[in-house]
Amino acid sequence: MSEKLKVSLIQTTLIWENPEANLNAFDQKLKALYGKTDLVILPEMFTTGFSMKPKDLAHSYSIYDWFKDHAMAGDFAIYGSVMFVKDNGGYCNRGVFMKPDGDFTLYDKRHTFTLAGEHEVFDAGQKPVIATYKDWKFNLQICYDLRFPVFARNVQDYDVLLYVANWPVPRVNAWDALLKARAIENMAYCIGVNRVGTDGTGMDYSGHSQVYDVLGHELLDHPWETEDVKTVELDKENIHYNRNKLRFLEDRDGFTLA
């Protein structure tokens, strides 16, 4: 059992609709972390930016090999999302959680962002997904999922909520508030990794990637708005101690997702 876990957050600009250039850039960022961390988290659609044009840009199964090669070489797990073309020819915004042994867990974004027309281009996922690594349980989420607390409700006894995002400047206050709320209400670590820079539509992003503990305390300086990589250490004792002392989860309401 691993009681402590080093997690590295890559907050960076993304090159608009250019998978090759973005993969090359992340090659260097990931290589710099080899042997230094347990889990690396990348932004949403980290190979393209938040584009609604998946034709000729969406990845197929070969992208799993890219994740696997870095996870094995770096001896860490990786989580990030990409445009993905499905076997039926449809597209999804797919989160990939790859472990260093080559085992992986997939999560298709449940809440497609209607304001940008994502629901017209990408198929929505159907259910929450939990990934397990080093005896830690991770609830995999993507961007707009953050606005829907029922979908994140901790009924699976998970340890960490992971959000990867392209969350823009005009609504970054909601990003800050909701990440903190998800940590507090689920008594779990909550990690959000956002991008910085400007995308091809002119939308600006200011980052504010953050890690919250089970009581909503920030583990990184705030606000973090520059391109950088930061590493924090999570401790299971923070979860065990507070859940035993403050048994709020025992009073949660029951529900069934439609």
Rank of each mutant, 00 (worst) to 15 (best):
R195M: 09
M1F: 04
E233M: 04
Q11L: 03
P149Y: 11
T201N: 12
K99F: 10
W167K: 03
T226I: 11
G117D: 09
T132W: 01
G202V: 03
D87Y: 02
T37K: 02
D157E: 14
F255K: 03
A177H: 08
F122G: 06
M83T: 01
T114M: 02
K86V: 11
Q11P: 12
D65I: 05
K230N: 14
G207F: 13
E3F: 04
F255Q: 08
R195L: 07
V193Q: 02
F67Q: 07
E218F: 00
D38E: 07
F104L: 12
Y144C: 01
N154H: 10
Y61K: 07
K6T: 15
K29W: 09
K245Q: 15
G117H: 02
W16F: 04
D135M: 00
E185K: 00
N173E: 13
W175T: 08
Y144I: 11
L234D: 09
V96I: 15
D38P: 12
F46G: 06
H119M: 02
G89Y: 06
M72N: 12
I63K: 04
W175D: 12
C143I: 06
T105H: 08
L23T: 13
A174K: 11
V229A: 01
L234K: 04
M52E: 14
R94H: 10
C190S: 10
K109S: 05
D221H: 05
N173F: 07
Y205K: 03
K4S: 09
A77P: 15
N194H: 09
M203S: 12
A174Y: 15
Y34A: 00
T256P: 01
P100N: 09
F255I: 07
E3Q: 12
F148H: 12
N18D: 15
Y212G: 06
R243N: 11
L146G: 02
N244F: 05
D199P: 09
L178M: 09
G117S: 02
T132G: 00
R182L: 08
N154M: 03
W66M: 00
K86A: 05
A58I: 10
T13L: 00
D69G: 00
K109N: 12
T48K: 02
T12H: 06
G125P: 14
F67L: 03
N194R: 03
Y34P: 10
R252H: 10
A73C: 04
L161E: 15
D228L: 00
M203P: 08
M72Q: 14
D65Y: 07
W224M: 08
Q156M: 04
L246Y: 15
H70E: 13
T12F: 02
Q156W: 13
L57V: 06
S8I: 11
D253P: 08
